[in-house]
Simulated scan of single mutants.
Amino acid sequence: MTPDLDSLDHAILTQLQDDARTIAETIGAKVGLSAAAVQRRIKRLRESGVIAREVAVLDPAALGLPMTFIVMVEMERERLEVLDAFRQQVLDDAHVQQCYYVTGTADFVLVVTCRDMLDFEAFTHRMFFDNENVRHFTTSVAMERVKVGLTLPLQD
């Protein structure tokens, strides 16, 4: 169920999407609320699950992970236990930044970050070659990170 959000909630969320460290006083000044009212709204947004997590966004290149790969994965079988096992494998691997279960020729689309091609090769062995339920995978190497983010377009 989607919680009822008003324009002030959207304004607060817009500020937090830009910088989650923004203090309530600053947000309040921008949206026309007291710091206490902003804090109450943020608490409600967290408790309702609208704010799912607050994390630091790291630069992978600055941390020695300059390569990004987009991988389309086709499973051998579409049985629930096979899909669930692959989902868990993806969740357990820190190299996988994003995973989508999709329609079409592939079953999953992964966004993977690695140090270099050798690192990616090791990833493919443990995720795909060592997994009898993976039928096929296709990889594209990202040439440039044009836009990366999780911000959502908010409207009233």
Rank of each mutant, 00 (worst) to 15 (best):
A122R: 14
L118W: 03
E144C: 07
D4H: 04
F108N: 12
T139V: 12
R46A: 05
A61N: 00
V146M: 10
A85T: 14
T139E: 07
T105I: 10
T26C: 05
A56E: 05
Q17N: 05
F128K: 13
A85F: 09
D6R: 02
Y100F: 12
K43T: 01
A94L: 11
R115H: 14
L118M: 12
L63Q: 01
V111S: 00
S140R: 12
I42L: 12
F69E: 10
V102G: 10
E144Q: 13
L152A: 14
D130M: 12
V90R: 00
K147I: 02
V50K: 07
D59K: 00
T2S: 13
L58D: 00
D93E: 04
A29N: 13
K43V: 03
R145G: 06
M75S: 08
T22S: 09
V109F: 00
T14H: 02
K30F: 09
V141H: 01
T2N: 09
L150N: 15
V82G: 07
Y100R: 09
M143A: 14
F69W: 08
F86K: 07
A56I: 04
R115I: 06
Q98G: 10
A62E: 00
H136Y: 10
C99L: 01
V82M: 07
L45F: 10
T22L: 08
A52S: 13
R40P: 03
R115N: 06
A122I: 05
N131H: 05
T124I: 01
S7Y: 03
A56S: 00
V109R: 02
V141I: 12
E25K: 15
M75F: 07
T2V: 13
A56G: 01
M127K: 11
T26H: 14
L152E: 13
Y101N: 08
E76C: 08
L63S: 03
A20G: 11
I70E: 04
R41S: 01
Q98I: 05
L154C: 02
T22R: 15
S140G: 12
A36M: 15
D19H: 09
R77L: 07
I70V: 08
Q89K: 13
A36S: 15
L80D: 15
D156Y: 06
G28P: 00
F69A: 14
A37Y: 01
G32Q: 04
V73N: 05
L16K: 04
E81R: 15
L83I: 15
F128L: 10
R41N: 00
E25P: 06
T2R: 11
D6L: 03
V109Q: 03
A62L: 02
I42K: 15
V112F: 08
F120W: 04
A62S: 03
V96W: 08
A29G: 13
R53S: 13
A62M: 00
A52E: 14
V134G: 09
V134W: 08
M117E: 15
V31L: 06
T124R: 08
V57Q: 03
V109L: 07
R44T: 04
M67H: 04
V73K: 06
G28H: 04
A61H: 00
I51D: 07
K43D: 03
